[in-house]
């Protein structure tokens, strides 16, 4: 689960980068030392009170730590880019540190973003962390949650959706059979494009590359991952740009079937599908909540009273974006 635009426990620290860790005691010490050595000052810490009742299906780590830090002093006047770069490097360094010593996992390090991942029965995981209680500690306006990870390969925490990099969160339903070619290309695009424990990480890295690195408008994401066929391109007024994109980023084309659900730094959420082999996705909501769900039964559980006639089932060429004001935009590629 990734939560963004946090309230409750973290309401006062929205601009302070929040580190989400699952680790051993030794791991916690390693991270503490690292952060201290690198001039990060801890300003807040929340450690969930866990419910260790017998019979829960969960492979729990010893510690779950959520800490807000102040940026090092030397970055006081640094640009947004420099700060973002430091947060990424720090998360990667912590991840490497923990991985090398097999002492835990670092999922995200970003202001106003919290990540919690664990292996087991999703209901029991929620019980363990007290997510069923309405205690008001963990509150967020935007939540991306997935209750099933890749079951095809080894079960590892880093392979569990959603994935996160520099303010971009993504989870997916389905698979990406252009994994190898995506991965081989992405590896050289950004030092943060690592892991590749799941073929769905490709979707996130491309989202980040198109929006954050190339700074292209969001509509071009769809043109990168599922480019229009050449025949269709010929009749488009923007053919020149689209063809240039298709040929330059051919190695980022994905191949389904899959559906993607993304959360962006500006608190909007989006969804789109592979262009030829769909996985289901539906968008529905009421006055207060809008949700994107990979199956309609999910919507029916959390929003049973919504106007179902307004549900949106995006097609293979469609992108749906929900902005912070809960306005829903949909457009065709």
């Amino acid at each position: 689960m990734v939560m963004q635009d946090l309230y409750g426990e973290f309401a006062e620290y929205k601009d302070k980068p929040l580190l989400s860790l699952a680790c051993t005691q030794k791991g916690a010490k390693l991270v503490e030392d690292y952060m201290e050595n690198n001039s990060f000052v801890q300003v807040h810490e929340w450690i969930p009170k866990v419910n260790k009742q017998p019979g829960l299906d969960i492979k729990a780590m010893p510690y779950y730590i959520f800490r807000n830090y102040d940026y090092p002093d030397y970055l006081a006047k640094a640009s947004k880019e420099a700060k973002e770069e430091l947060l990424l490097s720090t998360r990667l360094a912590i991840r490497e540190l923990l991985e090398k010593n097999d002492q835990g996992y670092a999922f995200s390090f970003w202001p106003d973003v919290l990540t919690l991942k664990e292996i087991g029965d999703p209901r029991d995981i929620a019980t363990y962390f007290g997510l069923w209680n309405d205690s008001g500690e963990l509150l967020a306006k935007n939540i991306v949650v997935q209750c099933r990870q890749n079951t095809n390969y080894e079960i590892v925490r880093y392979a569990a959706h959603p994935f996160f990099i520099q303010g971009y969160t993504l989870c997916a339903n389905g698979e990406n059979t252009f994994y190898t070619k995506n991965k081989e290309f992405q590896k050289s695009l950004n030092k943060g494009y690592i892991g590749f424990e799941s073929d769905s990480q490709n979707f996130l890295y491309t989202l980040h590359y198109v929006l954050h690195e190339l700074k292209w408008p969001i509509k071009y994401y769809k043109h990168v991952i599922t480019p229009l066929q050449f025949e269709e391109l010929e009749n488009r007024p923007d053919q020149a740009a689209l063809q240039a994109i298709r040929q330059s980023l051919g190695h980022l084309e994905i191949n389904g079937p899959n559906t993607i659900i993304g959360m962006l730094p500006d608190n909007s959420m989006m969804t789109c599908c592979d262009s030829k082999k769909l996985r289901p996705v539906v968008v529905g909501g009421d006055e207060e909540t809008i949700a994107i769900s990979s199956e309609v039964c999910g919507l029916n559980v959390i929003l049973p009273d919504r106007d179902k006639t307004k549900d949106i089932y995006p097609n293979e060429r469609e992108v749906v974006v929900i902005n912070e004001e809960l306005e829903v935009q949909r457009w065709k590629q």
């Binding site: 408008p217 066929q229 050449f230 020149a240 740009a241 994109i245 330059s248 051919g250």
Partner: peptide, 30 residues
């Protein structure tokens, strides 16, 4: 029955970050 795009590039392909794009009203233009 499926539509296949069996085509290959012939020519120098630029890396995406070297494409001479300008942004106007949310559109990329060469």
């Amino acid at each position: 029955r499926h539509v296949f795009d069996i085509l290959a590039p012939f020519g120098r392909v630029l890396p995406a970050n070297k494409l001479p794009f300008a942004q106007e009203n949310g559109e990329l233009r060469l």
